[in-house]
Amino acid sequence: MTWAAVLLGAALCLALKLAGWLVPPAVLERPAVRRGAALLPLAVLAGLLVVQVLGDGRGLVVDARVAGLAAGAVALALRAPFLVVVLVAAAVAAGVRAL
């Protein structure tokens, strides 16, 4: 099943890229389409963030992941590089779990 998601997702993402190269610009240059494509990633990433950090099956829980995310947010605010942000989050979450 995972392979189906990998291959179907890859095909659709390539189709979107190809569409931009092939479709007449007028269709995709409409303001509402441009704005939607700019804002969609924000909404979806925020949703992924919530599910990843608070989600627990059909419920929401506050656990070590939140502490890790908070530490990552601090690193991000201090302009740390991506890998540092991620490692700080992982280390703090692991530390809280080990307490």
């Binding site: 998601a5 979107l16 569409a19 969609l40 990633p41 599910v51 990843q52």
Partner: peptide
């Protein structure tokens, strides 16, 4: 992320596709 949270194939593919939509505008 969706697969890791226990999501199905369609939800995972839809999430990825939504995030890929901006590439179409880059392509234009």
């Amino acid at each position: 992320g969706v697969l890791g949270a226990g999501g199905g194939v369609l939800a995972a593919v839809a999430g990825a596709t939504l995030l890929g939509s901006r590439n179409a505008l880059y392509a234009v």
